[in-house]
C-alpha cells in the first residue's frame, strides 16, 4: 500500500519550517554585519517558503476530509496555508521545542541552525525518494536550501569555536543550552516514513566532526531530553512568537492589503 502522509505529519514538517523561519527573521535588521543580516534573512525566507509548501499539501488533505471543521477554515470553508499558519493556537503546533527557543546570541542562533539543519538534511534526503510525489518534490526542493544552511551554520560554529576565548565560551554555553532539546529529533512520534536509526548515527557523526573542529567535547546523545513539541506541549516562548506572527489576522480577520 502506497504511503499517504497524515495531516499531522505534514503540519509537523510545516510548523518546524515556519517557527524556525520566524525566529531567524527576527535577525533581519539586527545582524552583526550587513552580509550576515542578508544571509540569515535569505535562510529565514527559505524556511517560510518550505512551510508554505507543506501547509498547502496539508490543506489539500484537510479539504478532502469529512470532518475538516476540526481544522481552522477560511470564510469559504476551506483550509489554506494561511488558516493553518495564522489561526491555530500554541497547543495545535507540532514543531520541535528546539526551534521555538529564543535566538540568544550569535552562537545560539548558528548552533541551533546547525543542529536543526543537519537533521533536516538527513530527513529530506529520505523524504525526497518517497513514493508520494508531492512529498518527494517538496523535500527535494528544500534539500538544496538546507544543504546550504548546514554549510553556512557549520562554518560559523567552527569560527566561533576556534575564534577568541569569548566566542568559544559563548559556543560552549550555547551547546549546554541547546543540547537537551535534540532528543525530540529521534522520537519520531508522528511515525514519519524514515529510518531514524541511520539518521541518528549520521547526524551525530556530522555534529561531532564540527565539534572537533570547534574544540568542543564530543557530543553524546542525552539520556534525558526535553520533549512535548510534536504533541503540542510547548515552552512559553511559542506563545510569544504566535502573538507577534498572528496579531494582524487575529485583530483584523480576513484583512487584505
Amino acid at each position: 500500500m502506497s504511503y499517504q502522509p497524515t495531516v499531522s505529519q505534514l503540519i509537523h514538517l510545516a510548523d518546524n519550517a515556519l517557527i524556525l523561519g520566524h525566529r531567524l527573521s527576527e535577525w533581519c535588521g539586527h545582524g552583526p554585519a550587513l552580509e550576515q543580516d542578508i544571509a540569515l534573512s535569505n535562510i529565514a525566507l527559505d524556511y517560510v517558503g518550505a512551510a508554505r509548501n507543506w501547509y498547502q499539501l496539508a490543506a489539500n488533505q484537510i479539504n478532502s476530509l469529512q470532518d475538516k471543521a476540526a481544522f481552522p477554515l477560511n470564510a469559504q470553508g476551506e483550509a489554506t496555508e494561511d488558516t493553518l499558519a495564522y489561526l491555530r493556537d500554541a497547543f495545535d503546533f507540532k514543531n520541535f521545542l528546539l526551534l521555538e527557543l529564543p535566538n540568544g546570541d550569535w552562537a545560539v542562533t548558528t548552533l541551533r541552525l546547525l543542529l536543526s539543519a543537519s537533521y533536516q538534511q538527513l530527513l529530506l534526503q529520505q523524504l525526497s525518494t518517497n513514493e508520494h510525489a508531492d512529498v518527494a518534490a517538496i523535500a527535494a526542493k528544500s534539500l538544496k536550501e538546507v544543504t546550504y544552511h548546514v554549510r553556512w551554520s557549520e562554518d560559523w560554529v567552527k569560527r566561533l569555536g576556534d575564534g577568541t576565548d569569548e566566542s568559544h565560551q559563548r559556543l560552549q554555553a550555547a551547546y549546554h543550552e541547546l543540547w537537551p532539546y535534540i532528543g525530540e529529533f529521534w522520537e519520531n512520534k508522528l511515525a514519519l516514513p524514515i529510518d531514524i536509526a541511520s539518521m541518528q548515527a549520521q547526524w551525530l557523526a556530522k555534529i561531532n566532526q564540527v565539534f572537533e573542529a570547534s574544540h568542543l567535547p564530543q557530543g553524546v546523545l542525552p539520556t534525558w531530553h526535553q520533549t512535548g513539541g510534536t504533541e503540542g506541549i510547548h515552552t512559553e516562548h511559542l506563545g510569544y512568537i504566535l502573538a507577534e506572527m498572528q496579531f494582524l489576522q487575529r485583530a483584523y480577520p480576513n484583512a487584505e492589503w
Binding site: E35, Q36, I38, A39, N42, D155, R159
Partner: peptide
C-alpha cells in the same frame, strides 16, 4: 564588494548578497 573575515566567508557572503 563586501566585508568578510576570509575567502570562504567572502564567497558565502557573495552568494547571499549578490546571487539571491
Amino acid at each position: 564588494s563586501l566585508h568578510a573575515a576570509d575567502a570562504a566567508m567572502a564567497i558565502e557572503n557573495a552568494r547571499d548578497v549578490y546571487t539571491r
